[in-house]
Computed example of a mutant assay.
Amino acid sequence: MKKICLTFLFAFILCCQNSEKHSYTFYYWRTNLSLNTTEKETLNKTNTPYLYTRFFDIEKVNGKFQPIAVVTKDETFKTEKEIVPVVFIKNDVFYDITLEEIHFLANNVFSLIQKKQKDFGFKIAHEIQIDCDWTAGTNKEYFTFLTKLKEISGKQITCTLRLHQVKNSKLSGIPPVRKVYLMCYSTSSPLENSSRNSILDVPTLKDYLKSVNKYPIKIDVALPIYSWGIVTNQLGKHKLINALSSKDLENPNFKKIGQDKVQVLKDGFYFGNYLNKGFTLKVEAITDDQLNEVKAFLDKKLSDYAIVYYHLDGKFVSDHKF
């Protein structure tokens, strides 16, 4: 009996250690910074001092670089976390860009980051993260931008890493940073006709990451906790509605036709979109079982990594255990 109890105690301790193995925090990806009670409580429970916060996007508009959807803040956004600025840059920004333009872009990105940090009184981290789905055709220019931004800012520059950039690393190139954040989601397009979960299909992810242990830069991991709805019309064309959950499908004007899938029975506005009778709506979400399977896979590939969950939203965090 004593031996059984000791065995159970050891298994329990081991289970607890595994659940606490990885430090974690969140991305914040809304345009207006605000925190409700659930989000504050969830953020306060994280065991790292950082919150990865999207500041703005960069696009090329009429041949000029433009910051898009620059972040604003209300009085509810109060945190002791150090704010790590994240800037999303569209890949086509780096097509046909000159060295002079790269320097101009790096200077202006850092200047706008500094302005927002000062305006909002953030507790500033010693890191800036750049999010870009670079390709073999833009890697030279993008990597030059990262190097220049580090030189200008004096900060640690990190960047995101997509699944195809791991699998095809020889073609994509290795960014000149000390750490990357592996985006373990967007395994396929939500606009394809597929039965797979386009946010996270674990078999597809494992195939992309067969050799992730050989990647030559320190890797931390971004895991998804978000959900969305995919609308399909009678012609088979698709449209995304962000932040939908299975609970949103509980509507007398919807007929259930599958797991997390309904058919619209009556024309009308739903979730800010006009949907016609006959349209179908499928919700894709992430379960803790999926996340645990990904973590178990990565534990065998990577010696150590922190987790950044995408993203901090009361609608998502209440459905998960961290």
Rank of each mutant, 00 (worst) to 15 (best):
residue 229 G to W: 11
residue 242 N to D: 14
residue 205 L to D: 04
residue 231 V to I: 15
residue 248 D to C: 06
residue 238 H to C: 00
residue 203 P to A: 02
residue 227 S to D: 12
residue 251 N to D: 15
residue 250 E to N: 15
residue 247 K to W: 10
residue 255 K to T: 08
residue 233 N to W: 10
residue 197 N to Q: 00
residue 198 S to I: 00
residue 218 K to F: 04
residue 207 D to G: 06
residue 222 A to S: 12
residue 252 P to A: 06
residue 193 N to M: 06
residue 239 K to V: 01
residue 207 D to N: 14
residue 254 F to P: 13
residue 230 I to H: 01
residue 246 S to M: 07
residue 237 K to Q: 10
residue 187 T to R: 07
residue 197 N to F: 00
residue 213 N to Q: 11
residue 231 V to C: 10
residue 224 P to Y: 08
residue 243 A to L: 07
residue 222 A to T: 13
residue 209 L to H: 08
residue 224 P to H: 07
residue 190 P to I: 00
residue 228 W to G: 08
residue 240 L to P: 04
residue 201 D to T: 00
residue 249 L to D: 11
residue 244 L to N: 13
residue 200 L to T: 02
residue 230 I to F: 02
residue 259 Q to F: 10
residue 232 T to C: 05
residue 235 L to C: 06
residue 259 Q to W: 09
residue 252 P to C: 04
residue 242 N to H: 14
residue 258 G to S: 11
residue 219 I to G: 03
residue 188 S to A: 09
residue 187 T to K: 08
residue 210 K to Y: 14
residue 217 I to L: 15
residue 211 S to V: 15
residue 250 E to Q: 15
residue 224 P to T: 04
residue 257 I to A: 09
residue 207 D to H: 10
residue 228 W to L: 11
residue 196 R to T: 06
residue 191 L to E: 03
residue 259 Q to C: 04
residue 238 H to T: 00
residue 243 A to C: 09
residue 199 I to W: 02
residue 216 P to L: 13
residue 206 K to W: 07
residue 251 N to P: 12
residue 221 V to K: 02
residue 231 V to Y: 08
residue 232 T to N: 07
residue 260 D to Q: 08
residue 230 I to G: 01
residue 240 L to G: 09
residue 245 S to H: 11
residue 234 Q to L: 12
residue 192 E to W: 01
residue 188 S to L: 07
residue 227 S to N: 08
residue 237 K to E: 12
residue 241 I to C: 11
residue 198 S to H: 00
residue 215 Y to E: 09
residue 250 E to C: 14
residue 196 R to P: 01
residue 237 K to T: 11
residue 196 R to K: 13
residue 188 S to F: 04
residue 192 E to A: 00
residue 222 A to I: 15
residue 193 N to G: 02
residue 197 N to G: 00
residue 207 D to I: 09
residue 243 A to I: 06
residue 248 D to H: 10
residue 207 D to Y: 12
residue 205 L to K: 02
residue 217 I to T: 15
residue 207 D to C: 12
residue 256 K to C: 05
residue 242 N to S: 14
residue 193 N to Y: 06
residue 260 D to K: 04
residue 255 K to C: 05
residue 195 S to M: 03
residue 246 S to W: 03
residue 188 S to V: 05
residue 227 S to M: 10
residue 217 I to G: 12
residue 189 S to T: 01
residue 193 N to I: 01
residue 224 P to D: 09
residue 233 N to I: 06
residue 195 S to D: 05
residue 248 D to I: 09
residue 219 I to M: 05
residue 204 T to D: 01
residue 211 S to Y: 15
residue 191 L to N: 01
residue 235 L to K: 13
residue 204 T to M: 03
residue 232 T to L: 04
residue 252 P to I: 07
residue 217 I to M: 14
residue 195 S to L: 05
residue 225 I to K: 11
residue 219 I to W: 02
residue 228 W to F: 11
residue 230 I to D: 02
residue 190 P to L: 00
residue 202 V to K: 06
residue 196 R to C: 04
residue 209 L to P: 09
residue 195 S to T: 04
residue 226 Y to H: 10
residue 236 G to I: 01
residue 226 Y to I: 04
